[in-house]
Simulated scan of single mutants.
Amino acid sequence: MILVTGGTGFVGSAVLARLAEDGVTPVRAAVRSAGSHIPPGIDKIVVGALAHNTDWRAALTGVSALVHCAARVHAMDDSAANPLEEFRRVNVQGMLALAEQAAAAGVRRFVFVSFIKVNGEMTAADKPFTADDAPAPVDAYGVSKMEAEQGLRALASRSGMQVVIVRPPLVYGKGVKANFAALMHWLARGTLPLGAIHNRRSLVALDNLVDLIVTCVRHPQAVGQTFLVSDGQDPSTTELLQRMGRPARLIPVPAACLTFGASLLGKRAVAQRLCGSLQVDIDKTRRLLGWIPPLTPDQGLQKAAKGTVRETCV
Rank of each mutant, 00 (worst) to 15 (best):
K303W: 01
D281G: 01
L301R: 01
E121Y: 04
R201W: 03
A178P: 11
L16R: 12
A134Y: 04
T296K: 13
A59P: 09
R310Y: 10
A30P: 12
L187C: 06
A156L: 06
R246Q: 07
G62S: 10
A255Q: 05
V11N: 15
S13I: 11
H68F: 07
A124V: 04
R158H: 07
A136D: 03
K44H: 03
M1N: 13
R153K: 12
V270Q: 15
R57E: 04
T123L: 00
G195R: 03
K177E: 15
L19F: 13
G300I: 01
V11Q: 15
T259I: 08
G106M: 08
G23L: 11
V164R: 10
P135Y: 03
C275H: 03
T54F: 12
V210E: 10
A17P: 08
I197Q: 04
C69Y: 09
L84Q: 08
A125Q: 11
R310F: 10
K145E: 02
P254R: 00
D207K: 14
A248P: 03
S236I: 08
V92C: 04
V163Y: 07
A124K: 06
R108Y: 00
G48P: 10
A305N: 06
Q302I: 00
S202H: 05
H219Y: 12
I45R: 13
G175V: 13
R246A: 10
L288A: 13
I116N: 06
G232W: 11
A196G: 03
R310N: 08
K127P: 02
S64A: 11
L209V: 11
M1W: 09
G266M: 11
H185M: 14
L228K: 01
A124F: 01
P293D: 14
A59L: 07
M76W: 10
A262Q: 14
T61R: 01
A70C: 12
Q302M: 01
A71H: 01
A58Q: 13
L301T: 02
D283F: 06
H185L: 15
L84K: 07
Q221V: 05
I165K: 08
Q272S: 01
E147K: 05
F10D: 12
A156V: 03
L288H: 13
P193I: 05
D139P: 05
A81Y: 02
A105V: 04
D126H: 13
G276R: 00
E21L: 10
G290D: 15
P235F: 04
V107M: 02
V163R: 09
K145G: 02
D132H: 14
R287E: 15
P135G: 07
